[in-house]
Design a protein around this nucleic acid. Sequence first.
DNA 1: CCGAATCCGTGTCGATACTG
DNA 2: CAGTATCGACACGGATTCGG
Lengths: 117, 117
Amino acid sequence: MQPNVYARDCGSRQVLDRIGDRWSVLVVLILAEGTKRYGELAQRIEGISQKMLTQTLRGLERDGLVTRTVHASVPPRVDYALTDLGRSLLDLVAGLESWATNHLAEVEAARSRYDAR
Amino acid sequence: MQPNVYARDCGSRQVLDRIGDRWSVLVVLILAEGTKRYGELAQRIEGISQKMLTQTLRGLERDGLVTRTVHASVPPRVDYALTDLGRSLLDLVAGLESWATNHLAEVEAARSRYDAR
DNA sequence: CCGAATCCGTGTCGATACTG
DNA sequence: CAGTATCGACACGGATTCGG
């Protein structure tokens, strides 16, 4: 039987949670361009704290979606890149991004209507 | 210019957040089958609290993804259904579900490797 | 200098109990 | 049946500090 996302204890829930994570999607989208340094990720994603960026990257690394490479140099340098598994997510997250941008106006209109009610 | 999901104050961030919401995805997937009552949603989604189900449905309604219909009867009856906008999300969330189920094994393997490290 | 770890205020989540 | 109210626990986020 297929994993069931509606079941409480099915791991597929946790997988969905990671995909759904607000920061994970943005990190994956940027890493789609290629290997990036920690600092570049921090700059590109406005509003993310160092703590959450580190935590997000750790989670993605743990789930096998990104690799983390530490270069022993001064100044220190840490590179992140997508794994094959991570790249298999690209179409999906790119779809999310384009849906969000394409339907933003409709959603905002619906919100105005709801709030004015 | 297109909305930029990386910008802090762009509404597309909020749209992404709703799509990414752990419960929203599950609710939308079930409503894909057709109109559902509050109670049926609560039963189908294991582990969701009444509070979060209500909150999730309100959010989806506010964003114009779901309609809420109250029937003045005893016992009360409230129906939820997807709007056209909500249906436009179906392919995407179905894709998320299938990715999660299809790659669950790989993710769990990666986690074991990481945790054993 | 860049990246990670720590402390702490705050908001959000979940469980339980209660109401129209 | 379909919510609302309340409260404790936990996770988030910011600022600061540490470490290579």
